[in-house]
Amino acid sequence: MFKLIKRNYVYNEWFWAYVFLAVDLAWSTLFLFYPMIKGVIYSFQDIQLQNISNPHFIGFKNYINVLTDPDWWHSVKISALYTLGVVPMGIIIPLTISLLLAHFRRSIRDFFKAAFYLPGVVSAVVMAMTLKWIFDPMAGFMNWLFSLLGLPTQLWYSGTSEALFTLILMNWLSSHGFNILLYSAALDRIPKSLYEAAEIDAASSWRRFWKITWPLLKPTTLYVLITSVIGSFQAFGGAFFITHGGPMKATEFLNYRIYVTFYQFGQYGIAAAMSVLLMLMVIAVSLLNFKIMGSEVEY
């Protein structure tokens, strides 16, 4: 057997390909697939802190429980509003900045790209704390600025009607670095001659953007759209670090609700059902995006 292997396989690249793939497969089985499947199993079980030793299958009861809970739908609404608030700006802002940057020479462009990306490198906690200070309703920078300009100071994340918008605003201010890199790289990939051809073809700069740049950026936009929809549907940090889901549940995102259900209420089965529902929602929205955007994309 050994001889056989030695003669035929040790120097065979297929053999080594399988070996390396096996390591990866074992890794993802252990740490990704197993917990995922376990989560789906939990979602059909009555399992909670108080009877952790005795879980049993209860069919779709957890799902019915979640879907008939008005608070779940409240969280769906909050997450959807957040997504609607965050995603368009998550495309418009990085695209605008990238388009502006494209006019500068390389060193300046690289400096700004690094500067915009920096917040992404900083730990999420530091970022959240910084934003929390900026929007602090009592001693924050924004309110200082507002009072300096003679505007009425705001409650920001402490107001029931303002909190969600404040979190959206924080996202607008802070989380575009990676998308700027993506868009800048995509813009660099568009051949300059296309713009020159369009210029000779008498296209106005407006039309050049909509007829050349925008369609050619579609794969990038689709990627950004899907990742940011997924990201904002799974938003958690702002609620966790800054608002704790409040005030008055104004920022209780789906993921935060799952977290509370799991860790604070100890209802593991219901939390698992919520996670599965969230996963289905994200998949559905992503597929929808693919359908709408993907049809015309040239890869």
Binding site: Y9, N12, W14, V19, V23, A26
Partner: peptide, 10 residues
């Protein structure tokens, strides 16, 4: 045979 070996390894 390669697949079998790889799976065993996994």
């Amino acid at each position: 045979l390669g697949i079998v070996v790889a799976l065993l390894l996994a």
